[in-house]
């Protein structure tokens, strides 16, 4: 590991510390969120309202020195509201593109399952292609570009569940959950989250983040680990409980995320711990139970523990 990347790693650890000061008692989830960003993946936060999803997304953007925007998804949100519109400007006698809120580096798509499938797919297309095409005009999205989508897991009237193919675009699914009693008490005693947020300072720039991502590509992945990852993937495909197994895209994501996880621990190679840390978050939302149509991270974890480490 070069001194340069060691410094970068230090900065990221400082960023992680700051995050943990804001979101108390969720260090594992914060680590997964950072891994997701470093592996260039989008995140899906599934939780009930009021547990700090927005705060987390905002804090993540701030400490990584990224621009942040939040869009509340509702059933009347149109694709244009998200992507932007071309407006005729008389002064210039031409159409001018007014970029929507999506033109940011970190987009918090709040309650994504409340928007219509049309709006959802507009977002997901932008995520996949890193660009937005409106009226034949293509506008590249800024780099890096991350989406942190939240959704309320409980099925409710008036929501549109994301189809399986769209779920696959999210690298990891995270749950914040209620803070434990100690953390909640600290929260109640302390100053408001907003104040802490405003006190945050960026720890690294967007360029440095990209350098870190390049560094991560150098992490070694030994043969036995590839065997392990393949064994896990094929286990999901063979298990009759699921309507379908993990895609190759998911497997690639797992490899990237494992490398990011190893890098964050200042290791030069991936070890099975990395795989086991990431797999439930990666597979949980992708494995849909045949019987109930639900997805369940616990089953993904259970499945993981039924596969031997080669």
């Amino acid at each position: 590991m070069t001194p340069q990347s060691r410094e970068m790693l230090q900065r990221l650890h400082q960023a992680e510390q700051q995050l943990n000061q804001i979101i108390l008692g969720k260090a594992a989830t914060m680590r997964l969120a950072l891994i997701g960003i470093l592996a260039r993946g989008h995140l899906l936060l599934e939780d009930v309202p009021g547990v700090g999803k927005t705060t987390m997304a905002h804090a993540l953007a701030t400490v990584l020195g990224l621009r942040f925007a939040r869009v509340q998804f509702t059933s009347d949100l149109l694709p244009a509201d998200l992507l932007g519109v071309s407006v005729y400007e008389r002064s210039m006698e031409a159409f001018r593109f007014h970029p929507g809120p999506i033109f940011t580096q970190v987009l918090l798509a709040d309650e994504i399952n409340r928007a219509t499938p049309k709006t959802q797919s507009a977002l997901l297309e932008a995520m996949a292609e890193q660009q937005v095409t409106i009226d034949g005009e293509t506008n590249a999205l800024p780099t890096p570009f991350f989406v942190i989508a939240t959704q309320n897991p409980q099925a409710q009237i008036g929501t549109f569940a994301l189809p399986e193919s769209q779920l696959d675009r999210f690298l990891l699914r995270l749950e914040l959950g209620y803070p434990d009693a100690k953390a909640e008490r600290a929260l109640l005693q302390g100053i408001s989250r907003q104040d802490v947020l405003s006190g945050l300072s960026p720890m690294l720039s967007a360029e440095q983040l990209q350098e870190a991502q390049q560094d991560i590509a150098q992490i070694k992945l030994a043969e036995p680990l590839l065997d392990y990852i393949q064994a896990l993937i094929s286990a999901t495909r063979e298990d009759q409980r699921f309507s379908c197994g993990l895609s190759t895209r998911a497997a690639l994501g797992l490899v990237q995320a494992c490398k990011a996880s190893a890098w964050l621990e200042a290791r030069s190679m991936v070890i099975p711990e990395d795989v086991q840390r990431i797999f439930p978050a990666l597979a949980g939302h992708r494995l849909i139970l045949r019987q109930s149509g639900r997805s369940d991270p616990h089953i993904a974890e259970q499945l993981m523990y039924s596969v031997a480490i080669p």
Partner: peptide, 15 residues
């Protein structure tokens, strides 16, 4: 009953 083939050096899950 359940029936399955297991490839060499591999495992198979069966419900």
């Amino acid at each position: 009953s359940a029936s399955t083939h297991i490839p060499g050096q591999d495992h198979q899950l069966l419900a």
